[in-house]
């Protein structure tokens, strides 16, 4: 702040408070709704203080889902979400870091061709090739499988570029010193490059964890079996009709389950999260 203007500081805080309020309000309502009976919520206006049904609602959704819509148990869905949220970043980091290593540290025929191939995937998000990708998965017998949920999503141009960019900043002399020390390419990769990439990997992991957890269209397409639903899909499948027909208390309890893990990751790993976000987009 350059000069002291109390009214401006006051205004700043007011605007920020308002922003925080707008951001937090839906969360608060969600939480309140998840602590009441359906009857309580159905009254307009719904209560704005917590009720006493928290344990009941969460027990219900964790073990048996809703009664009218999807009956997938929340616990199973959380496991499925977790599998996606872990397998996607781990798979993505693994295949991206090794392909970036090959592209940066080797010269070989077709190198640029591969590079462009990976680059072009940026222009083919799943949303634009829905039907044919679905057919490929169906033909490979990967519907309703973890492999089907995760493998097609682990190819990533951005992650490969991020590692490539990072490797470019690693001094050439480091690789040369390792070579003089007698390290071959894999040894250099393992002993030097990977330890140096730790922060990049952590940042990428946080971003991709959220990406994996929040996947929607993809699991919507390829999971028809309730036991394979992810939490986000489960919420959608609990909505069965007009707003009065839904068990909002259970839907909101599931929504809390769906938000909690990624929100915790963002809050607790804020440093990596911000770094990952800002750097993957560069």
């Amino acid at each position: 702040m350059v000069e002291n203007r109390p009214w401006l500081t006051f205004l700043s805080h007011s605007v920020l408070m308002l922003g925080v309020l707008a951001v937090a309000f839906p969360l608060y309502v969600t939480f309140i709704a998840s602590t009441h009976t359906l009857e309580a919520i159905m009254q307009a206006p719904m209560p704005l203080v917590p009720g006493d049904q928290l344990v009941e609602n969460f027990t219900q959704v964790l073990t048996a889902g809703s009664t009218k819509g999807s009956k997938a148990a929340g616990a199973t869905m959380l496991v499925n979400s977790l599998v996606m949220a872990l397998a996607i970043p781990l798979g993505k980091i693994t295949i991206s870091v090794i392909s970036a290593f090959a592209i940066v540290y080797f010269r070989f025929p077709l190198r640029m061709f591969f590079f462009w191939m990976i680059f072009v995937t940026l222009m083919l998000p799943v949303e634009v090739r829905i039907i044919p990708t679905f057919k490929v998965i169906a033909d490979l017998g990967m519907l309703n499988t973890y492999a089907g949920l995760t493998v097609p999503l682990i190819a990533s141009a951005t992650a490969t570029f991020l590692f490539r960019q990072f490797f470019m900043t690693v001094p050439d002399e480091l690789a040369e010193a390792a070579r003089v020390d007698g390290a071959g390419p894999l040894r250099f990769f393992w002993d030097v490059l990977l330890p140096l990439s730790k922060t990049t990997m952590a940042a990428l992991f946080v971003i991709q964890f959220i990406y994996g957890w929040n996947q929607y269209l993809w699991p919507l397409l390829i999971t028809t079996d309730e036991s394979m639903y992810t939490t986000v899909i489960g919420i959608k499948r609990m909505i069965v009709g007009g707003d009065a027909a839904n068990e909002w208390n259970l839907i909101m309890a599931t929504a809390i389950l769906a938000m909690l893990p990624p929100a915790l990751v963002v809050m607790l790993m804020q440093k990596w999260f911000v770094k990952g976000l800002v750097e993957t987009e560069k």
Partner: peptide, 27 residues
């Protein structure tokens, strides 16, 4: 306090606001 909605899936964000704005019961 401002960054955490990033962690919310678009579908979940939709459901939250649909509930808040639900024609008969929304707050």
């Amino acid at each position: 306090l401002l960054i955490w909605p990033y962690a919310v899936a678009p579908a979940v964000a939709g459901v939250l606001w649909a509930f808040i704005f639900a024609p008969s019961i929304g707050i």
